[in-house]
Simulated scan of single mutants.
Amino acid sequence: MDTLSSDIGRQEHSLKEFMPITAKTCVFRQAIGPCAYDCVKLTVIRDGSAILCSQLGKQPVTIGDVVLLCSNTLCAAEPEDRCTVSTILIDTDYMIDHMFWKHAGLLSDRLEAKDLIAKLYLEPAQVLRLGVQRLEVIEPWLDELARLSARCRYANRFNRIQALWFLIADVISPFIKVSPVRLSRYQRERLRPSTPRHRRFVPLRSEAMQAAQLLRGDLAHHWTIRELADQVHLSVPQFSRVFTESYGKTPMAYLTMLRIEELARLLRETDLPVEYAIEAVGWHSMSYTIRVFRAYVGITPGVYRRNHNTVV
């Protein structure tokens, strides 16, 4: 009975712990699928061979091949005798974050990163022919990643798990087919609130710090660029340039970000009605707030409250 209880406890613990990167090595002797995952799936063929059935049609895979499946892509596989594979599952939001930071100089936020991924990876299923030599390079990393995944201690081994994934991805990524997309420095938008925050690492001007403090100190005030510029004794064009260089976004975009963060806190930590919380941060239009909040957080204020409110 005690053993059963401890097994159940371990299972419950593993279910509770979310792991954006997880890996597993297994041998299969019978047909699998068709099935789809709401994540990116990488399957490395380490021994044996199989027939893959997906949007690619029927295709043989063997030692040294990697099957890349985008999220929600149906795929089935039938081994020829038996097949040993290592499978890595990667959360799509995690991939979006990495795409954002890879092109942080050109993209304004995660929404643009998501759009870029959709344009780059038009093929939902790919077979990457790494070969045996490259497989031998990544096999120790696959084994360690699988061991760490089985222990379900993602937070404790966060850096090592990420490091292993980066090492594997560095070998695999040159084989991934992507669509030609022209990126330009003019793509960056500074008017949209973004997270993580854009900024160059330069010393903050005292005028920018003073203006940011004014905004944080009174979110509900109807601030204008001219009023802020007057407060810090700069012309409007000069103030806009100084502030944007310091914080990576315009003063009004920065104010929007602060208001959304405060609104999210009020929705999480208080029982203030949504409309009153919106007014408390300086907005008076419910439709505008819903549109901006959804663009920044991904869901409406009402849904955010239901999912995250901690007030009993």
Rank of each mutant, 00 (worst) to 15 (best):
Q126P: 03
E144W: 06
W141A: 02
D91Q: 08
R151D: 08
A118G: 12
G131P: 07
M95H: 02
W101M: 13
Y94S: 02
Q126L: 05
T87W: 01
P140D: 01
R151M: 13
R153Y: 13
I88C: 01
N159A: 04
E123P: 02
K114W: 09
D115K: 15
S108G: 14
A118L: 11
N159P: 02
R110V: 09
L148W: 00
R151A: 15
I96W: 06
R160I: 08
P140S: 10
A104E: 15
K119C: 13
A150N: 08
K119I: 03
Q126I: 00
V127R: 08
L128I: 08
A150V: 04
L122M: 10
L135G: 04
L145Y: 04
N156Y: 15
A155T: 14
L130K: 06
G105V: 09
V127K: 07
I138G: 07
A125N: 12
L135T: 10
E144F: 05
L145G: 03
D91L: 00
I90M: 12
L142H: 13
L148I: 12
K114A: 15
D109W: 03
R151V: 14
L106Y: 00
L111R: 15
A113F: 04
E136S: 07
A113E: 09
D109Y: 05
L145I: 04
Y121M: 02
M95L: 09
M95D: 00
Y154H: 12
C152A: 15
K102A: 07
L106M: 11
R153D: 08
V137S: 02
V132E: 05
L142Q: 05
A113K: 06
W141D: 03
D97I: 04
S149A: 07
S108L: 03
P140W: 13
A125Q: 12
R157Q: 10
S86V: 05
L128G: 02
D91V: 03
V132G: 06
K102Q: 14
L142F: 13
E112M: 12
L107W: 00
I96H: 05
L135R: 05
G131C: 13
V137T: 15
I117T: 00
K114C: 09
M95C: 04
L128R: 04
E136W: 14
R129N: 12
L142P: 01
I138D: 11
I90K: 00
R157L: 11
L111Q: 10
R110H: 13
R129F: 09
A150S: 05
A125R: 08
L142N: 04
I90A: 03
I96N: 03
M99D: 01
V132H: 13
S149K: 01
K119H: 14
M99I: 03
N156S: 12
E123S: 05
A146Y: 02
K114I: 01
G131D: 02
